[in-house]
């Protein structure tokens, strides 16, 4: 019963991490820099939903899509006005990272200004005991979260595989120069990836907020776990990404249950480091030139 409950926790956490890491990964492949702005997009999505649903009393099922698209719009705007010119100047990826950190600081403080730093609640229903399955419990919100994240994940993969824009995205992610030779407008494709990524990130933020409430800084830790899952999975592989998320979630949840609570972080990260040393290229093990020494 305890084991089953831990299993449910792991599944729930990994679903959120999958969504987070995929939202980050989809725009990481073509631009190849750590876009910390996503941390702000995660909280923006949640706070916009809060604004529409709680403060303007719009029905939740309308509020969520509006909030999602608005956050995607913000993400795209930043891309057009800041990252694109920087990219033209051939700024290094680290410089871009620093700029995205600056944008994160700006957006996070804007949220603090507008809604304050205290926790806000976005509970859809009253918190009550979940459905019992063999002694373990699962709540409606958890079921919704798991199904929504998996559905979105599948949809995005389907989109990338079979849609024309999706194919362009994959082409640009693999090789920008080659894609341009084929006549693909890589700038526009990057905008698409930022848009899709921001949508997914905002949804992830909303899903987390319905369970844990909202704070302006909620996005940073969430993004970090997404990035780590992506890198552990091995850049450029969907299966690896799922594996990375499950590994990260299991490491967190299992150490939390079995270890002395104060060493949880240390042990969870040691497991990740050990894993990276065992498989230096992540789960998918996609080859990098440097390591083949």
């Amino acid at each position: 019963m305890t084991f089953l409950q831990i299993l449910i926790n792991i599944i729930y956490t990994s679903c959120i991490v999958i969504l987070l890491s995929y939202s980050f990964a989809i725009s990481y492949y073509p631009v190849k820099f750590f876009n910390i702005t996503f941390a702000a997009i995660i909280s923006t999505g949640a706070y916009l939903t809060y604004l529409l649903f709680r403060q303007l009393n719009i029905i939740l099922w309308i509020a969520i899509p509006i909030a999602t698209f608005l956050s995607a719009f913000i993400g795209v705007l930043f891309n057009i006005f800041i990252y694109r010119p920087l990219n033209k100047k051939k700024a290094s990826s680290l410089l871009m990272l620093l700029v995205s950190l600056g944008i994160y600081i700006i957006l996070q403080n804007c949220i603090s200004l507008l809604w304050g730093d205290e926790i806000r609640s976005l509970q859809i229903a009253n918190v009550k005991i979940g459905h019992e399955i063999f002694g373990a419990f699962i709540t409606n919100v958890q079921i919704i979260t798991i199904s929504v994240s998996l559905t979105l994940f599948m949809l995005t993969i389907y989109f990338l595989e079979y849609n024309k824009i999706g194919k362009c995205i994959r082409a640009v992610s693999t090789n920008k120069e080659l894609a341009s030779i084929q006549g693909i407008n890589s700038e526009r494709v990057i905008l698409w990836t930022i848009g899709i990524g921001s949508c997914l990130a905002a949804v992830a933020g909303i899903l987390v907020a319905t369970e844990n409430g909202l704070t302006p800084t909620m996005g940073f830790n969430l993004l970090l776990s997404g990035v780590i899952a992506m890198i552990i999975g091995g850049v450029g592989s969907n299966c690896g990404l799922i594996g990375g998320s499950i590994l990260l979630a299991s490491a967190q949840q299992l150490t939390a249950y079995y270890m002395d609570s104060k060493w949880v972080d240390a042990v969870a990260y040691l497991i990740l480091i050990m894993f990276l040393i065992w498989r230096p290229l992540g789960i998918s093990g996609k080859r990098l030139k440097k390591i083949e020494i």
Binding site: T2, Q5, I6, N9, Y12, T13, V208, N212, G213, T217, M218, N221, Q252, Q253, L254, A256, Y257, S261, K262, D265
Partner: peptide, 20 residues
């Protein structure tokens, strides 16, 4: 006696542990 990180928001494993 369980120690949690400042900023942490997922306590499901701890809740389970204390429940047992």
């Amino acid at each position: 006696s369980i120690l949690i990180n400042p900023g942490q928001s997922d306590f499901r494993s701890y809740a389970l542990l204390i429940k047992t």
